[in-house]
Nucleic acid binder design. Structure first.
Lengths: 204, 204
DNA sequence: ACTGTTTGCCAACGCTCGTTGACCAACGTA
DNA sequence: TACGTTGGTCAACGAGCGTTGGCAAACAGT
C-alpha cells in the first residue's frame, strides 16, 4: 500500500503534471474524490466499492482506475489528511486544553475525511498504520512544543489522542446518542481540563 | 440482523436445545466460535471470511452455515458480549474511577471479543448499533448507580465511554506505540481521576 | 481539414465470496 | 442387523468485486 500520510506522487498515467493551466478532467477527478470520501466515511474501505463511487460521480468505474491506479491509490488520494493543528506554543499554557478540544471539534464537524480515516484505521492493519503515521508526523511534533520534557512527550500525546479519538469514536462513528447530543461548549468544558492535565500536569 | 446484545436463541437448525447432556458437535461449535472471534478481531467483519474461519477450525465452510445460519448469525453468536461491569455502588465513591479503569483494562487484555466488537462497530452502521446496544443495556445501568441525578447520567456515561473506548482504540486497535507501551498502573493513575471526575464531579 | 491526444463508455476477465444441496460415514437404538 | 439421526465433506451456484483493453467521441495543434 502506498504511503498516504505524505502526499506522494500519484500513479496517474497522465504524462506531465502541468501546473500552468487546468486540465479538462480536473472536475471529474474532483468529483471522484468527493464521492470517494463520502463513501469511505459512510461505509468503510471494503464496503465502499469502486462501482458505487463511480456511480455517485456519474462516470464509469474504469475512469477511477485510469486516474488513481487502484482502489488503494484512490483511498490514499482521498484521505491525504492534514489535521492542521495550531501551534500550541504561542498561547498561555492554561488554555492549551480547551483550545485543542475546540479545534479538534471544528475539524471533525467539517471534514468527513477524518471519519473515513478513523473508520478505516479501525478496520484493518494497513489503516491502523496510516493513523500511526498521522500521529507520529502531525500530533507528536505539536505535543513536543507543549511538554518540553522529551521523556514524557509520547505518553502525554498518547493520552491526549486516546481522549480525543474516543470522543470522535463515540460521537461521529458509533454515534452513541448521549455523545451526539452533547453541545459543543459542554464538551469543551468537560474535556478541556482533561487534555490540559494530560499535557501539562505533573506526572501523577 | 439478529440482535446480538441479548443472547437470543440462535437460528441453528438443530431441532431441540437439549440442555441435559452434551452433544457430540459441541466441540466443533466451540472451535468455530473460537476461530471466528480471532478472525473477526484481527480482520474485521468483511475481511474475516467464512472460508478462513472454517479452515482455522479444520472443518468445511458449509458446517458454519449449518450451525449458525449465515455469516451474520455467526458474528452475532461470536460476539455475544457481556462486559460484566462491577457494581460500583458498593465501594467508596472516590475509588470509582480507578476501579473502573482497572476493570476495563482487565477485560480488554483477556478478551479478544471486545477488540472484534470495536473493530466491527467502527466499520459499519449495523456494528455501530450493536455497540449502542451494549452501551444502553450494560453501561447505562451501572452509571445510574454512581451518579444518581438522572438528568446527568447519560452525559457522564458518554464521557466515560469516550475516555475508555479511546484508550481501547489507541492501545488495542490502532496500536499507537506510546499507547501500547504505557504500563497498566500508569494508565490507571492517569485515567482514573479523569473517569472519577466524569462520573462524580459537579458539572463544570 | 488532418492527426494525435485526451476523456469517456462498454464489455468482459478472473477471482473470491456466501451459500446450497447432494452425498457419505459414524453412531444409537431396536 | 437394519435404520433413522447426527456430524461432516464435496462440488458447484450465482453474484459482486477490482481490474483490463478496446473503441468512440471530443478536443487541440498545425
Amino acid at each position: 500500500m502506498p504511503d498516504s500520510t505524505s502526499p506522494s506522487s500519484p500513479p496517474t498515467p497522465v504524462p506531465a503534471p502541468s501546473p500552468s493551466h487546468a486540465r479538462r478532467s480536473d472536475a471529474t477527478r474532483a468529483a471522484i474524490l468527493d464521492s470517494a470520501r463520502e463513501r469511505f466515511a459512510a461505509d468503510g474501505y471494503e464496503r465502499a466499492t469502486i462501482r458505487a463511487i463511480a456511480r455517485d460521480a456519474k462516470i464509469d468505474p474504469s475512469m477511477v482506475m485510469r486516474y488513481f491506479g487502484s482502489k488503494e491509490g484512490l483511498f490514499a488520494a482521498a484521505v491525504a489528511v492534514d489535521i492542521r493543528l495550531p501551534d500550541l506554543g504561542t498561547l498561555p499554557r492554561q488554555e492549551v486544553g480547551r483550545v485543542l478540544v475546540a479545534h479538534f471539534l471544528d475539524q471533525w464537524e467539517g471534514n468527513e475525511v477524518l471519519t473515513a480515516l478513523l473508520r478505516v484505521g479501525a478496520g484493518s492493519q494497513a489503516g491502523a498504520e496510516r493513523m500511526q503515521g498521522v500521529f507520529r508526523d502531525q500530533v507528536m511534533p505539536v505535543a513536543r512544543r507543549v511538554c518540553p520534557d522529551p521523556e514524557q512527550t509520547a505518553t502525554r500525546a498518547a493520552l491526549t489522542a486516546a481522549q480525543l479519538l474516543g470522543l470522535a469514536l463515540t460521537r461521529y462513528v458509533l454515534r452513541l446518542p448521549p455523545a451526539v447530543a452533547l453541545p459543543r461548549e459542554e464538551i469543551v468544558a468537560w474535556l478541556g481540563p482533561t487534555v490540559q492535565r494530560y499535557l501539562t500536569a505533573p506526572h501523577p
